[in-house]
């Protein structure tokens, strides 16, 4: 009874507040509007802290060189050509390793994703390989292949093919079985089925794998270039370490960072172009 008596009063109050507040139209549970140049804010802040630290002497140059020293050192390295030649060597290794790894990962994923026999033969060993960190294979690879280019490129390839395989295979296996049914009712041949349904269906997985692969390629590159190398960005940094030149080490780090970002950006661009049919929360 008391509830019944109070209800009309409550409702009247609510109505009043509803009139008083202006209607706000915004998404309550989405991440909200994107901030302009949002991606740059964090790095710029970091650069600011670093500059202030160096200018006030709070950062010892032997620990971390000032940003402007890094800039002038970059200029010097470009002037005497060391930067370009080392960068070229590193980029070549990364590209070749990446290319081989992508090809290997894709072929293995298709073989294992499209036939039960392929899966039985391939999936187990690849999962075992995945459990072993690529870099733990280095001692064996050095014994087998020496310390030359073939060892370096093999290491990168081994680091790259695993994420490509895992994500492409997963993409293949998670294609909706309803599409398989559709393909049967419209009478697609096996090849048409692969071209029209399987490959486009696995593309999002492949591209995700590609993003991991690119990161993996740089990681492997850093390591192999610091083992008995005579060229490459890693070699340049390793040499700088022996002379205590933190500025050159930072130039190397920045280079790795910039290259990594460029590669990742390229993959994301490909993703956006290739997956334009997809609409996600972030769009």
């Amino acid at each position: 009874m008391t509830q019944l008596a109070t209800l009309p009063g409550v409702r009247a109050e609510r109505d009043q507040t509803a009139v008083a507040t202006p209607v706000r139209r915004r998404r309550r549970l989405g991440p909200g509007k994107p901030i302009r140049f949002g991606a740059a804010i964090g790095p710029v802040l970091l650069l600011g802290v670093w500059s202030i630290g160096s200018a006030t002497g709070w950062l010892d140059p032997r620990v971390l060189s000032a940003p402007w020293t890094v800039v002038t050192t970059t200029g010097d390295l470009i002037a005497d050509g060391r930067l370009q030649s080392n960068l070229l060597t590193s980029a070549q290794r990364a590209f070749v390793g990446l290319g081989l790894g992508i090809a290997l990962g894709t072929v293995l994923a298709l073989l294992s994703g499209l036939s039960r026999f392929g899966e039985a033969v391939l999936d187990g060993p690849i999962q075992i390989k995945r459990a072993i960190p690529s870099l733990a294979l280095l001692p064996l690879l050095i014994l087998w292949l020496g310390i030359g280019e073939s060892m370096k490129i093999t290491t990168i390839t081994l680091g790259v093919f695993v994420p490509i395989y895992i994500h492409t295979h997963n993409g293949l296996r998670t294609i909706d079985s309803r599409y398989v049914e559709l393909a049967e009712t419209v009478g697609l041949s096996r090849w048409e089925f692969i071209r029209r349904v399987v490959l486009p269906g696995a593309l999002p997985g492949f591209l995700l794998g590609l993003r991991f692969a690119v990161t993996g390629a740089w990681l492997a590159l850093v390591v192999v270039e610091q083992i008995n190398s005579t060229s490459g960005i890693g070699y340049m940094m390793e040499l700088a370490r022996t002379y205590g030149q933190t500025d050159i080490i930072i130039v190397g780090l920045v280079l790795y960072g910039v290259l990594g970002l460029l590669f990742d950006g390229a993959v994301r661009l490909i993703q956006r172009k290739a997956l334009s049919w997809r609409r996600t929360l972030a769009d």
Binding site: R178, Y179, E181, L182, A183, V186, G187, L188, E192, R196, V197, P200, G201, L203, L275, W277, R278
Partner: peptide, 18 residues
Amino acid sequence: QDSRLLPWARVLDNVALG
């Protein structure tokens, strides 16, 4: 019951599938 269109193929390619 569901239209079962391939989301990665344009409308015309869906109609002419196969």
